[in-house]
Design a binder for these strands. Sequence first.
DNA 1: TGGATAATGCTGAGGAGTTTACTAAGTCGG
DNA 2: CCGACTTAGTAAACTCCTCAGCATTATCCA
Lengths: 385, 385
Amino acid sequence: MATTGTDLSRMREMNQLSIVWALRGNPPSTVTELAARAGLSRPAVDVLVQALVTDGWAEVEEPGASSSVGRPARRYRFRADAGHVLGIDVGVHKILAVLSDLEGNLVGTLRRPVDPDAPPGARLSEVDRVVDDVLGAAGMVPADVWAVTLGVTGPVDAAGRTSFSTPLPGWTAADPVAHLAARFPCPVRVENDCKLSAVAERWNGVAQDADDIVFLLAGLRTGAGLILDGTLRRGHGGAAGEIGALKAVRWLTAPDHLQSCPGIPATAAPGEAAAWVFQAARDGDREAVKAVRRYTRDLAVGVAALVLTLDPQVVVYGGGFSRSADVVLEPLRRELTKHCLRLPELRVSTLGDESVALGAVRLGLDEVDSRLLSDGLSAPTAPHR
Amino acid sequence: MATTGTDLSRMREMNQLSIVWALRGNPPSTVTELAARAGLSRPAVDVLVQALVTDGWAEVEEPGASSSVGRPARRYRFRADAGHVLGIDVGVHKILAVLSDLEGNLVGTLRRPVDPDAPPGARLSEVDRVVDDVLGAAGMVPADVWAVTLGVTGPVDAAGRTSFSTPLPGWTAADPVAHLAARFPCPVRVENDCKLSAVAERWNGVAQDADDIVFLLAGLRTGAGLILDGTLRRGHGGAAGEIGALKAVRWLTAPDHLQSCPGIPATAAPGEAAAWVFQAARDGDREAVKAVRRYTRDLAVGVAALVLTLDPQVVVYGGGFSRSADVVLEPLRRELTKHCLRLPELRVSTLGDESVALGAVRLGLDEVDSRLLSDGLSAPTAPHR
DNA sequence: TGGATAATGCTGAGGAGTTTACTAAGTCGG
DNA sequence: CCGACTTAGTAAACTCCTCAGCATTATCCA
């Protein structure tokens, strides 16, 4: 416990930060409201918020039509557009970039398909183009960005590299952090896609109330991201949640039960095959129901291992198959009941395939916040590495 | 992020706490040393530490023989004996109570065997007697104790009750918190034994440097305790680490491979049977080696599930079988290599069977510290619930 | 005995937040 | 239209904390 002594200036810094947090995410607020929220006296808040205005963190809204009795109050608003963060989802088939202001409002989104076989170099060039376009559309340049987070499949180490297998062809040789760092002076971070989805579900999704969350990515690939005690857990080497690597857990081959179901139209693509099977199962097709049950049984072993290890409050069912959750959730629940001591809540993701990019944005915002905490707030400018 | 505003008095409180932490666990210190450690100026430390002395948190040591040139400095010492915490291990065969001062120095230890078939009431009465004796030997009464932590086998919920199975006969009907709360006015907590062992290994044991730890309890019972990012993880319902409940993980029956090894002397008790097999394996007995390998194989599946889920830095091999780690560790390592993406360090516990009680003490000390942080430090007295 | 060294004690300066009182700017009711 | 009431903004007095600097004190060594 290395608590270090505090002096006046640090105290003022902390109080100013608490004003920022009282300001942000709220409608324009009066000094009195801020004082109540931050637990400070009105005069103190007054000078602090005025300092924020002169620094550029906040702006004044002169009193307009008053709605109640008494002198109308000046209101202060957090300048969410003082900075922006960028979240990028590098998938096998698509690249999705999301630009957000400091309050988490999305100010730009751009999705572009990419050749599934594209080598890392081409994929990163495509990332550059998508990023340029989404920044250009918002009238910004890379120097305006305060944090960049990139999501990829496969476990990511502390340096942002993917050493083990990943569906992205050749990606183990890529160094995405170096690539992005050459273009962005701000902090750059790479993270696993399941982990980012988990973060997104807690931020904007279906698990906002929970502190212990397992996000289950169910699709042609199966994976998991963990949030414990409210924060993303990466593990010592960044490989937390990779239970699918265990042979006894048949996550790798679980989707095959769907692909090999008799009756799938020959013309269907892999992704559509699964969707067809789910629909058939929904319609009562015996073979399809059996295939879904086999899939669920394999899925459940891994989920049970996660649940028994972590005892989460919520398991979020996400990924491509979450659209067909209605035919999967009940069998999954039954299987889990067999395996687990205490059944967590099962919820279905609603964020769709934007969850990775959203989680990336959230992680970028967290990075900004932790910078503010450690460095204090001077004038709002993009942090450097 | 609910940062609340700070004023001067809170600042002083924080600084005083930082002095306490600079004082504690160090030899008697001069004001200058404290100032350096706490990052405060000398005059500030001076008044703070004098306040601590008048409150009773610290005591003065007048300058004695000076060891170097210059005026000899007054030294201040943390009054570790201002309060004490109690850690109790309620095992199947024994009850172990450890009494510690506020610095974590053990001032009393008492172990007493208990009938393995004793019902909860008798077991708790025995706990009372052991506690009375260890307190009596130290010349203390229950009101002198600042925190009590009790360790039991089986998952423990937030109320301190064990709802699932446990080797302690009838324990699911027991309410140990209520029982202890009737005798101790201070905070009382009950925790799972594996979790406490994990805490102890990080405090005083073999994993002091690690932040992500899996403690593996290997004995007639198999279990696990998890430390992630430096703090104990309990899970939402307190059942984190219970991977052994998964059927695919054969932890329940794994020790049977040892019990059923041919050649065990008929006279051996269950615990001695395993020891005999380990010794025989050490001596090269083919059957024994095979039995150990079968045991290890079953053990490894569960460990692999934990490792893949959490990606820890260290796995600590503890429990009764850790005395025979030399014949288990290598096969275990081989098995894990087959299953895992990244092999964590494997270390052998050195704390022996005191680890549960030690972990309980540590949790009590943490409880005291968090009280100080939230309530500030008035005169040192036992906190109430 | 005198000089060097290092700790102690004291005083004043400066900064931050709180309290209190007062002024300004609205609404509401007669 | 005017006065009572309510709420916001502002300024001064006050308290509390830390810090810097200087004088004082105690010990060792030559």
